[in-house]
């Protein structure tokens, strides 16, 4: 591994460490005691035991070191709301439903978005371009919860084709039916982002001198598009793909809540409403780690596909 990579890796862990620290203290400073609601009616002695068991009686800084030590061993602690439940288990249970929905949405959204973006760039100023750009702007103009609600109203209430909310962990027709609306709702935004991005990228490449060189050689049609235009315009699109792949696991807070999918996002939202400190912290750490790691992967992939950036020889 090269020096650059090591440096990059080091700064990645440093960032992660700083972020976890900030989040830890931020969360612990939030007013509202996680045990308050359930401990309200308990006698003082039992209450004190509870606090001691969860380490909440110790000073904040001690709590922080305890937490970091556990974290290094892959232990996220126990839920403060669902007593006795390890956070790790709750999270592992929540990831598969999120993944199903998000992989669908990502595959569908990215391919459609890229396709539409290329189409728009090649038909610049003509009606397909205007149509694609209209869809793209609409995609970022309608809040996803409105879109999701509208889908429910149309397909469930009016047409009665699909179940409004719900989920099954068994793959199959039933799961597929449950996943259709969340997938559409999620992919709409992805299509919007990618079509805009690809359009701009393709237009940029089309204006480059090397496209003139290729045309002057007699390259045309498919080979011009594939070898010269698309290969170069895909590269910048990698930048936005990274965080989105991290999003596969993280899921969507809003969409999962609306469609009643017991995924990572919904669990997170309920943890916030329940003031479940350890749960919020654990999930935030995972989100951060995934995000930072995805940026690292993007960097490496970039170096592999773009010969102008030599990550490995430096």
């Amino acid at each position: 591994m090269s020096k650059y990579m090591l440096k990059r890796l080091f700064s990645m862990f440093l960032t992660l460490f700083v972020v976890i620290t900030i989040v830890f203290f931020l969360i612990r400073m939030v007013p509202g005691d996680p045990l308050a609601s359930m401990a309200r009616n308990l006698p003082e002695q039992v209450k004190a035991n509870f606090y001691a068991e969860y380490g909440l009686d110790k000073p904040l800084i001690t709590q922080y070191f305890i937490y970091m030590k556990h974290l290094l061993h892959g232990d996220f602690g126990e839920s403060l709301v669902y007593l006795g439940q390890p956070i790790k288990e709750i999270i592992l249970r929540a990831i598969p439903p999120s993944m199903v929905i998000n992989i669908h949405a990502l595959l569908w959204g990215v391919t459609t978005g890229i396709g539409l973006g290329i189409l728009a760039a090649y038909k610049r100023g003509k009606w397909p371009d205007h149509l694609v750009m209209f869809i793209a702007i609409l995609g970022v103009s309608i809040p996803s919860f409105v879109l999701a609600t509208a889908l429910q109203y149309l397909f469930s209430v009016q047409l009665n084709w699909l179940p409004t909310i719900g989920w099954t962990s068994e793959p199959g027709m039933k799961q597929f039916k449950y996943s259709i609306m969340p997938t559409i709702a999620l992919s709409f935004g992805i299509i919007a982002v990618y079509s805009r991005y690809m359009r701009a990228s393709v237009l940029d490449v089309l204006n480059q001198d090397y496209i003139l060189t290729a045309k002057a050689k007699g390259v045309s049609g498919f080979s011009l598009a594939y070898k010269h235009v698309l290969r170069n315009s895909f590269i910048p699109a990698i930048t936005i793909l990274g965080p989105q792949i991290a999003g596969i696991i993280v899921g969507s807070f809003v969409i999962e809540s609306i469609f009643g999918i017991p995924g990572f996002g919904q669990v997170y939202v309920s943890a916030i409403t329940n003031r479940d400190f350890t749960q919020i912290l654990g999930q935030t750490v995972i989100i951060n780690a995934l995000y930072i790691f995805s940026l690292f992967v993007v960097d490496i992939v970039y170096g592999l596909v773009d010969p102008r950036i030599r990550v490995f020889n430096k």
Binding site: L26, V30, I272, T284, I287, N288, L295
Partner: peptide, 13 residues
């Protein structure tokens, strides 16, 4: 690198 929505939620809490 802190997802903005997460941070906004925490801050508003």
């Amino acid at each position: 690198s802190i997802p903005s929505l997460v941070m906004v939620i925490l801050l508003s809490l």
